[in-house]
Design a protein around this nucleic acid. Sequence first.
DNA 1: GCATGTCAAGTTGTG
DNA 2: CACAACTTGACATGC
Length: 307
Amino acid sequence: MLRLGLCCLFNQSPIRFRSATAKVLKKLDRPGQLARLGELCLDNARSLATAVEEVHKLGIGAFRVSSPLLPLYTHPEVGYRLAELPGDEEITATLASVKTLKEKYSVRLSFHPDQFTLLSSPRAEVTAASLQELNYQTMLADLIGADVINIHGGGVYGDKPSALQRLVAQISKLPEPIRSRLTLENDDHSYTVSDLLPVCEQLSIPLVYDVHHHRCNPDGLTIAEATDACLEVWRKVGREPLLHLSSPKYGWQGKPRPHADFIALEDFPTEWLSLNATIDIEAKAKELAVLKLQQELGLPPWRKSGC
DNA sequence: GCATGTCAAGTTGTG
DNA sequence: CACAACTTGACATGC
């Protein structure tokens, strides 16, 4: 069975995630910061629970959780641990309730750290910050039951083989709770499926195949070939494959990278129709785009039997 | 109230 | 060489 996934935000549903800036927090004393952060974390944990409920009601089978769910958690100056926050027990309990909900409804949860999280940098401080971020997202993934933390290859630094070697070395050193969730994704200008597959095969780290990035940054593989090769690693580790799909906002001429509001049906690879996999839909119209595509493909609403 | 500018972090490619 | 693009909004500020 194929399931489509919503990424981070809603268009119609009034579910919102709150944020804070370090600049503003730094004006407060430490107790003031923790009070503010505690409030935001609790609100966001509740919003996430509502989001999982909503996704289930809509018949959507997966949800990508936005990385700053716990705002500024790894910030070098205002960062914190949950146990430091006023109301931490309620926050933890609410996050645990997300796990219960997602299991009840069979909704798949994942994380996609942003471009600052990368394991190929020659700079030790960049790698250290990335590891902090991966630790944070793994802690959160464990609490809510998310099974994927998906990152890009990162920079090339004028020497791709060396960068890939650093990537392999860093992944090899990761503690098991991170490693068992980590995936790599082909990006739209540096690392193709062909670049990453050897690393993925060697380390048994699955590859999240983004077909839009592949179309922007081709490597000679057809979509069918790339799909098969990626699925093979997912099969080897016994996990449900994750794929990404989007349509270009301005068409394929000129600037194809920005994402469109909806998915154009012709951008959906026919090879994917019969898969047992999750496809995250990266489209600005959010749940409207997921539901529209689901309908156009003739997919039934995602519901675990009995719910 | 509403419009506008700002926000932790990395890297690449463009203007 | 500086800065926008990645993705995208929420929040603070200023009128």
